[in-house]
């Protein structure tokens, strides 16, 4: 059977080991959080760029739609629309690509 003093020594050793593990985990946690924070900043920056790109793409799509609508009144714009595949070229099969 262990002596009371050896039990105390063992407990103190275990306590020291736990403290060391806690310190290592704290350090790792802080580093991980900092790394994740950097990634979040990067993601937020990229998200802003993607949002801006989506906004301008939507504007150009609306502009193309208006141009197609305009072509119903004035077919002079058709060559431009056909060049950008917004309207089928004359002679092209309907529904064919």
């Amino acid at each position: 059977m262990l002596k009371p003093s050896s039990v105390t020594g063992l407990l103190v050793l275990l306590l020291l080991a736990s403290v060391l593990v806690s310190m290592a985990l704290c350090y790792r946690y802080v580093r991980s959080v900092n790394g994740a924070q950097l990634l979040e900043d990067q993601a937020a920056h990229l998200q802003a760029q993607v949002n801006l790109a989506n906004r301008y793409t939507a504007i150009v799509e609306a502009m193309a739609k208006d141009a197609v609508d305009y072509s119903k009144r004035n077919p002079a714009i058709d060559p431009i629309l056909q060049q950008f595949d917004l309207k089928p070229k004359p002679g092209a099969r309907a529904g064919g690509r």
């Binding site: 736990s18 806690s22 946690y29 959080v33």
Partner: peptide, 30 residues
């Protein structure tokens, strides 16, 4: 001392979970 060891063990488990959660979040972000 035994109570402190138990407390630290609980803290260590919590920290380990947090580290894993942050790593998972970082992987999703990447």
């Amino acid at each position: 001392v035994a109570a402190l060891i138990l407390l630290l063990a609980a803290l260590n488990v919590y920290l380990l979970n947090q580290v894993r959660t942050v790593h998972r979040r970082a992987a999703v972000l990447a």
